[in-house]
Amino acid sequence: MGRYIIRRILGFFPTLFCVITVAFFIIRVAPGGPFDRDKKIPPKVLEAIEEKYHLDKPLYVQYVLYLKQIASFDLGPSYKYQEMSVNEIVGQGFPVSMQLGLVALFFSLMIGLGAGLIAAIRRNTFWDYGSMGFAMLGIAIPNFVIAPILILFFSLGLSIFPPGRWESWESVILPGFSLSLVHAAYIARLARAGMLDVLTEDFIRTARAKGLRERLVILRHALRGGITPAVSYLGPAAAAMLTGSIVVEKIFLIPGMGRYFVDAALNRDLTLVMGVVIVDAAVLLVFNLIVDILYGVLDPRVRYD
């Protein structure tokens, strides 16, 4: 297990490095520099600005300088929010998105695994059709439709939860729930399919032939294999939830990462875009790593390869 984990961790940095490189060059190759749109800037001033941000240097020099900067965990100054560094902006937005994401992750796991397992165990019953019907709706109805309905119902109608903003613990419930739904739906479908797959395995028949109670057959013998497909979905899904949903943050007026990202991209704030890309990619890689480790925990064949 130790060797397995170390191998996975060592794979982390080369991938992150490649991502940084690819993103850096994609951004620079894309037409339009960060200050092109501001036609009013006099050429002299523009030159000065470009020098300040090393934009006057050849691309490869910029790249090397940028890598050096990154290596000391400095994401650089923001082009647009001149008074703030990218580190500060990310430091503000990311914790908010993280909290929201953790709540959403919790909801999606509870709802998704719960519905998926019930559907598999009570196959072809009301419970199965009900959960899978809801899962289909969760996948087919965009959350910018669901979220306003939730607000209408729970905040404006029942006044249980606040309709938005980021003030108290209650304010995270509705956005977290909205954000979790589509992932809960996928997890439910994957968990159901995985369980049904495992339940046809020979070793399940063996477990039943031994006279085990159905609860043990399910929980001890089927569960680990059955949730594996859902676990592999969980890596990218958790990363997506934790790095901030642009749509949900916009609807609920939440000052997270997602919003900065759109603004930054539209404003061609290249350093901020790069900062967000790096943080997002790192979070995704961390979650893929966690998933790989979970695989090892769940399946001894992976652990001992």
Partner: peptide, 16 residues
């Protein structure tokens, strides 16, 4: 590697 690039990054870049 391309999988690891945030999806929204690419989409918004395309929009830009």
């Amino acid at each position: 590697v391309l999988y690891t690039l945030p999806y929204m990054f690419i989409v918004i870049l395309l929009v830009v």
